[in-house]
Design a protein around this nucleic acid. Structure first.
Length: 901
RNA sequence: GCCGGCGUGGCGGAAUGGCAGACGCAACGGACUUAAAAUCCGUAGGAGCGAAAGCUCCGUGGGGGUUCGACUCCCCCCGCCGGCACCA
């Protein structure tokens, strides 16, 4: 292809326009108060997820979302909006540091090189970014504010009474460090010996490091944590009014993992004294079915309660668990393991003695690290009970028999035998009524194993005071009962954990924190930014000491104080970059009140500040959740006008290789944008990215497809230009300042209508298809009405801005209608009256099958349409001898005769 | 295992419950050309009948249902992709 003659001179005019746009600062967006700012226009903030500038350069996946947002940015400018459309670099990160370890090259140097390359690549695509707002997370002027925001978090606490972050000095307790939103804790972390660093949970995949695939082990370490869990409820509730895909909201919701239940105290029966063990359950209604208890192996009371006889077995078990990798432990498919501690607990609702086990299926980090086991109504407990022959006590019956139970005699029989309880036992009798002291029926081992356990909701049975109550009522009643006796209380739990915020790395933001006499202390804002020290060796220390420990002078803050050695994770910089874009050069604030208020809005109409945020699903949970959390804290502290960062979110789909496989170097199916642009031009590249299919869908790349849209653009070019024998491009003779034909007008206005509507729904592929229809129509015409071409070029301009501006300029040489540029024109509006056809073709159906067609006047009435259908000879032949049951007439569409066969 | 998403020609994909396959790719036929490429015009879901105009049947992963009418709505099943993975 590259050797082939070009169908239109894109390699001449695309760079030409890119230079012109850059020189005239066409896409610079003034802020409120700046010269050229028009306060009367509405604002539109359209944002891309900024890239990590890797050494690989751009691949065709990046520009997919970028092209979509660029089209929308350009479209909104043409519709009279002030558009904020910036780009920057998420430039801290592990790859640059690993490269530095290998080559000794400073990460700042490689990062700068990669950024330069990425920028050139983006510029070649003709994106309309306001480059005067470019930010780089590694820039000290940016780091200053990342550190400043960290200090806001550090100097804040979550006040449960106001349900918001407040300054730490409003805290009345005597140990403020215990409630700060940034705190230090000894945490079991993912220590990766090969990388010499800890990793966040999300950086560990299948027990190995996401980067490099090295083994990861658990090890306790002193870490900075951010108290994101305090905001769990608001992070959950805040999702509701956001215009995000429901699937993404669900992912976040599940990640936060809210559950309602109760804490319940069980007393341990011990020769010495009674120690209460607190458990968490979401099903307090099944308390009467608790036949044993399980503690996590790491539970602090394990050593205390274990009997001398069981000591050895318990210790061996704990040893085995400790030596297991996190991966093996987390693997839910492995068989349940555990040992008996020898101790027993008393079930508070029925005074029943139940054994206490330890098992690794109970996790330390959730709830209280201890559970009551109800094998009849919990899959895990059921599996465990079967394996260790523990009793199973049914306490909930399904309300309605299932379909299978209704139809299968066998199932009914089996169900009745479940727990050996018949329907008569619903009435008090064999079961403990509340407080009567009658012992519960716990079946001895061995017993016939129930066929399965029932985890749904139903009616309580065998449950004393709860018997006969539906699950929801039973939960309420037993919780009240427990609360009255101080045996338990209602509680809400979340799966969400606090955010492990420190990394033992070089290439990240240093903490603005020093240590003095064993206490941490914040630096003053005036001391920011804390810059990274120079190092000539970036290798991990090999111990848990971060690389910054090597910079002895830097570490020494004063004779009594040393600097924090950890750095922040990569998420830190990307948590707030969308804010800095509003006011990137502000040296006294991270964002001014005025710019924040303008670009983010007042938070009243919509909670989110950014109007549209486009990026990959891989950030569905962490980046978006962390950003929301930071935003919330800064908002609470009064620095931001909106409670949420991103109002509308769209995920672009992954672009696969030609072979339908994920693009990767090893498969050799990676497409380089530079080559595509060299061969077909930036406009064709942009157009193909959008024409492939729906933005959100995964789809394979096809060079043939690129050629298709390239040919389309060449057809547009030839609507206006032709090549002379000596290779010059000239305006064609057929251009004429004449009114378009009615058909042309109809197609043109249908195109205005469809392109406009499709841009609103981000259906770029169908918008382009409609423009193709329009071009096909105009190509067929002998005379080319310039009014039609004018509109077409305006519509095309957001998609293919170079060719639109070039043809506009060419036409402007001859026709006065082409003033200025295509991209500065006002977006056209369609005229609905031009779309209406006087004659419409309607379909004649029999029982829904097409049996004929008929052309009628557009406003023909039902009766006339039906009569016309009956009068149609060919069609009515099909009706011969049939009994007509019903006639459906949809005016302008069809007539359907329902007949009896 | 649980939760989401998706299954439409040879391919990418279109279709407020109303003519399935818009638009593009690949293919085929024609025009232009010494020839090819490019371009332009045209054909085209599959099977069958017909000399032809045309006609019939089958078709949106599979099976049922609702409806005059289902790619579209409901139920069950299968396959692929993504997320979570013992969260009590």
């Amino acid at each position: 292809m590259s050797s082939q003659r070009k169908q239109y001179p894109f390699s001449y005019f695309e760079p030409k326009w890119q230079h012109r746009w850059a020189e005239s600062q066409t896409y610079r967006t003034p802020n409120p108060g700046d010269d050229g700012f028009d306060a009367s226009k509405p604002k539109y903030y359209v944002l891309d997820m900024f890239p990590y500038p890797s050494g690989e350069g751009l691949h065709v996946g990046h520009p997919e979302g970028y092209t979509a947002t660029d089209i929308l940015a350009r479209w909104h400018r043409m519709r009279g909006y002030n558009v904020l459309h910036p780009m920057g670099w998420d430039a801290f990160g592990l790859p640059a540091e690993q490269y530095a370890v290998k080559t000794g090259q400073h990460p700042a140097a490689t990062t700068a090189r990669n950024v330069a390359r990425f920028k050139i690549q983006l510029e070649r695509i003709g994106f309309s970014y306001d480059w005067s707002r470019e930010v780089n997370t590694t820039d000290p002027d940016y780091v200053r504010w990342t550190q400043w925001i960290f200090l806001q978090i550090y100097n804040a606490w979550f006040n449960p009474e106001t349900n918001r972050a407040e300054l730490i000095n409003t805290y009345q307790g005597n140990d403020p460090d215990s409630v700060r939103l940034a705190y230090v804790a000894e945490m079991p972390v993912n220590w990766c010996p090969a990388l010499g660093t800890v990793l966040a949970n999300e950086e560990v995949v299948d027990g190995k490091s996401e980067v490099g695939g090295f083994p990861v082990e658990r090890r306790p370490m002193r870490q900075w944590m951010l108290r994101i869990t305090a905001f769990a409820e608001r992070l959950l509730a805040g999702l509701v009014p956001l215009d995000w895909p429901e699937s993404i909201k669900l992912l976040q919701k599940n990640w936060i993992g809210r559950s309602e239940g109760a804490f319940v105290k069980f007393a341990v029966e011990n020769s010495e004294h009674r120690i209460p063990i607190e458990i968490y359950t979401t099903r307090p209604d099944t308390l009467f079915g608790a036949t044993y208890m399980v503690l996590a192996p790491e539970h602090p009371l394990v050593a205390t309660i274990t009997t001398p006889e069981q000591k050895e077995a318990v210790e061996n078990y704990i040893q085995t668990i400790a030596s297991k990798s996190e991966r093996d432990r987390q693997d839910a498919s492995h068989e349940k393991t555990g040992v008996f501690t020898g101790a027993s607990a008393i079930n508070p609702v029925n005074e029943e003695r139940i054994p206490i086990w330890i098992a690794d299926y109970v996790l330390t980090g959730y709830g209280t690290g201890a559970i009551m086991a109800v094998p009849a109504h919990d899959d895990r407990d059921y599996e465990f009970a079967k394996k260790f022959h523990l009793p199973i006590q049914e306490v909930v019956r399904p309300i309605a028999p299932t379909f299978q139970e209704q139809t299968s005699e066998k199932q009914v029989a089996e169900n009745t035998s479940l727990g050996g309880i018949t329907s008569e036992e619903f009435a008090p009798g064999g079961i403990i009524p509340g407080g009567t002291g009658v012992p519960p029926v716990i079946h001895p081992i061995p017993q016939p194993s129930p066929p399965s356990c029932f985890t749904g909701e139903g009616i309580a049975i065998n449950s004393g005071l709860l018997t006969g109550l539906p699950t929801a009522d039973a939960k309420r009643k037993i919780t009240t009962w427990l609360e009255e006796r101080s045996l338990g209380r209602a509680a809400v739990q979340y799966k969400l954990r606090d955010w492990l915020f420190s990394r033992q790395r070089y290439w990240g933001e240093p903490f603005p924190i020093i240590w003095e006499n064993g206490h941490h202390r914040a630096l003053n804002a005036s001391e920011l930014p804390v810059r990274l020290p120079e190092l000539d060796d970036f290798k991990p220390t090999g111990t848990a000491e971060p690389p910054l420990a090597k910079a002895k002078d830097w570490v020494h803050y004063s004779d009594t104080a040393t600097r924090e050695l950890n750095t922040m994770p990569q998420w830190a910089g990307s948590c707030w970059y969308y804010l800095r874009f509003c006011d990137p050069q502000n040296s006294s604030q991270f964002i001014s009140k005025e710019t924040a208020h303008y670009w983010l809005g007042d938070g009243k109409r919509t909670p989110g500040g950014v109007d549209l945020y486009v990026g990959g699903t891989e950030h569905a949970v962490l980046h978006l959740l962390y950003s929301r959390f930071w935003h919330m804290v800064i908002y609470d502290l009064g620095h931001l006008p909106t409670p949420e960062p991103f109002q509308r979110l769209v995920n672009q789909g992954i672009i696969l290789g030609n072979d339908g496989q994920k693009m990767s170097k090893s498969r050799g199916n990676v497409v380089n944008p530079d080559e595509v642009i060299h061969d077909y031009g930036a406009d064709a590249f942009r157009l193909y990215e959008m024409f492939m299919g729906p933005l959100e869908q995964m789809k394979p790349w096809s060079m043939k497809g690129v050629e298709g849209v390239y040919r389309f653009l060449a057809r547009v070019w030839r609507l206006v230009m032709h090549e002379t024998p000596d290779g010059e491009w000239q305006l064609i003779e057929a251009l004429a300042d004449i009114p378009p034909t009615p058909t042309q007008l109809r197609v043109l206005h249908a195109t205005i209508k469809k392109v406009t509507a499709d841009l609103g729904t981000l259906s770029f592929n169908t918008a382009i298809a409609q423009m193709m229809v329009c071009v096909n129509e105009l190509t067929a015409a002998e005379k080319r009405p310039i009014a039609a071409l004018r509109t077409l070029l305006i519509l095309l301009s957001p998609f293919a801005p170079h060719i639109a501006d070039e043809l506009w300029e060419q036409l402007g040489k001859k026709f006065a209608e082409f003033e200025g540029h295509a991209h500065t024109q006002t977006w056209p509006q369609h005229d609905e009256s031009l779309l209406i056809e006087n004659e419409v073709e309607i379909v004649l159906q029999i029982n829904g099958k097409v049996r004929g067609k008929l052309t009628v006047s557009k406003n023909a009435e039902r009766a006339r349409i039906e009569a016309a259908a009956r009068a149609d000879e060919k069609f009515s032949a099909h009706l011969q001898g049939k009994e007509i049951l019903k006639v459906i007439v949809v005016p302008g569409k069809l007539v359907n005769f329902a007949v009896k066969n």
